[in-house]
Amino acid sequence: MAPRLAGGGGAVSTVGRRLLEIRHVSKTYGSGDSATHAIADVSFAVDDREFVCVVGPSGCGKTTLLKCVGGLLAPTNGDILLRGTRVTSPPEEMALVFQEYGRSLMPWSTVRNNVLLPLRHKKLTRQKRNALVEEALEAVGLTPFIDRYPWQLSGGMQQRVAIARALAYQPAILLMDEPFASVDAQTRGDLEDLILRVREEFAITILFVTHDIDESVYLSDRVIVLTHGPTEVKASIDVDLPFPRDQIATKELPDFAHLRGHVYRLINREQVESGEELAATLKTATKGDRP
């Protein structure tokens, strides 16, 4: 029997318990006149085993937010709490999957060694390490390609390697930054279903950033809509579509269409508002210029 990957190091976890908390997080780049306010004030929480999608208009600081959550970037203000502990550096219970799989995988390493990368510094026996690598690759259906190089694989397969690498790390929560944004539509659907399956199999919590509204509704238990930058939380919408989800059946449900429309309207209004704001600023600016 293969060792179980899930469970995040054997921690007791029950559905519904708070796993991740983002409290009044803000991020400002630079200072003084040249300061850019990427995130104004963002707060939300993710429960254990929940699948939360974060959507927002493009350029709204989603990636910045995820980097803060992952401990790669220190927020200017506010706290990230993982099981109540403040995150100051990348925690062992989190794994990140980047959009740019081509740059995130090491081209000089085989698929096996890429998946092995995060395990080398963990105190594990060689057998345990290999078992984790093999189990993770099995879960994403890449066992036959274990000795290939990433660049010998298609884009979708490369992203599956990145997902396997994150799974092998045995995190409690998976952070995904627009992971399927650079693959074709067919592959994208396949990867969406893969991540839903993996989520069940590994009993994992997922925080998934995307700009694709359909994707956010299709995948998640809850969608968090962000405002235009400087970012705040606009709404949190529960997605109570039945599981297992299906690319055709789920998307034909009236509820799906309703939710999708709801999120669309929120984001559209957001864009219109920020457009009006811009127009207003321009108007005052032009007025001010006239004598």
Binding site: K67, G70, G71, L72, S89, P90, E92, M94, A95, L96, F98, E100, R103, S104, M106, L117, P118, R120, H121, R165, Y169
Partner: peptide, 22 residues
């Protein structure tokens, strides 16, 4: 590539290991 470095960092790979693995 900064993405490669961020990837290693996110998996808790320390500075010395990052040097010879990335």
């Amino acid at each position: 590539d900064p993405v490669a470095i961020d990837t290693a960092r996110s998996f808790g790979v320390g500075p010395l290991e990052r040097l010879y693995r990335v």
